[in-house]
Design a protein around this nucleic acid. Structure first.
Lengths: 188, 188
DNA sequence: ATGAAAAATTGATATAGATCAATTTTCATT
DNA sequence: AATGAAAATTGATCTATATCAATTTTTCAT
């Protein structure tokens, strides 16, 4: 909770009333490894903040599991298309580790945005940050070779390589496990 | 100008003071076809609103021109990574048609966000919309075949196929002009 | 500690789309 | 309208990565 409030205050010094309101609307739960936060065809109704642990987004394509992203501690977690448009999701969100999470419903978040205009300052900045990362990643997927993407992954997420099965990293980088294995064999 | 204000008011009924301030800070210019709004290594300092016309984003990779996006009339235009992080751009922004544009500097926009907290409501919602589109597009690039992406492009941008050289559509869909030509030959 | 299941590796082959090269078509400018 | 340049098409290869299959290694629950 404190990390979350600190993160918010670092963006904009919000009022005490807003903080109290936010705290009263937040729920906390520690989910065991392998819990599903969202499944395809469901409408995403909650935004999460990962206090500790790790969440993965993925979808199934012809039965194959393709990772769309990793959200480690101190990240926000949503499935953007489903959450922002309130439409059925195409992806899963699951915990890869036991994860203490804070959650806030779409309705409560909307309420805070309407009630406290300054909260939109925070929401805008956070959205800009996640949007920017998403764009950068899309650019790298197009611009870089498989090997460069792997190096970039290692430097962006230094701790993840040991926490996550290689097959998830492979699909995140747009590769099959076989190709990923061969790339790593060339350099380690 | 009116389309822009209408678009804003449809998201949030902003104060007259904010509207006046915004109008006084906006610049208008009609740029001829082929004008560059941004080039690599420049820091993007302006957000644009396309009143009429068409803007294209692209970057060069090994001398090849890869289209990152099309921004037709009533779109906002930025290069997200460069604008939000105020760091050198990796891409170009150019007009593909004679385009009357409204522009607002990064400083002026920041000022409006600080001065008028409710303006962040608008900024947040617009950012969410563009983020969502970007995510959806990245998903389609991974999930769909070349042919499906082409069909999706045609239905998302019904007018663009006739306004834009095929080679730009090809690179936007992640294809070479040759492959794009062959895909089209199979169905037209 | 042990065995079963999952993950990773390694090798052989297949393939979508890229690349290279040569025309043909379209377009813009005088 | 003419003409030179850019764009699009078409054909012949090439290649990075996928796919398929078999084996080894790791992980995890009992």
């Amino acid at each position: 909770m404190n990390t979350l409030l600190t993160l918010i205050e670092a963006i904009y010094p919000v009022s005490t009333a807003l903080k109290q309101s936010l705290v009263s609307l937040l729920s906390h739960a520690s989910l065991p490894k392998g819990s599903l936060l969202l499944s395809p065809d469901q409408i995403s109704t909650k935004i999460y903040f990962v206090e500790k642990g790790l969440v993965r987004g993925y979808y199934l394509k012809d039965g194959k599991d393709i990772t769309t992203g990793f959200m480690p501690e101190t990240s926000f977690v949503i499935s953007p298309v489903s959450f922002y448009r309130q439409q059925p999701s195409f992806e899963y969100l699951e915990t890869l580790e036991e994860s203490p999470l804070w959650s806030l419903s779409y309705q409560h978040l909307s309420h805070l945005y309407s009630q406290y205009p300054e909260f939109n300052y925070v929401g805008r900045v956070v959205t800009e940050q996640y949007y920017t990362r998403s764009e950068l990643r899309a650019h790298h997927l197009r611009m870089q070779t498989a090997d460069e993407r792997y190096r970039a992954f290692l430097s962006e997420y230094p701790t993840l390589a040991n926490r996550v099965p290689n097959k998830h990293i492979a699909s995140f980088l747009g590769l099959t496990p076989e190709t990923f294995s061969r790339i790593r064999a060339k350099r380690d």
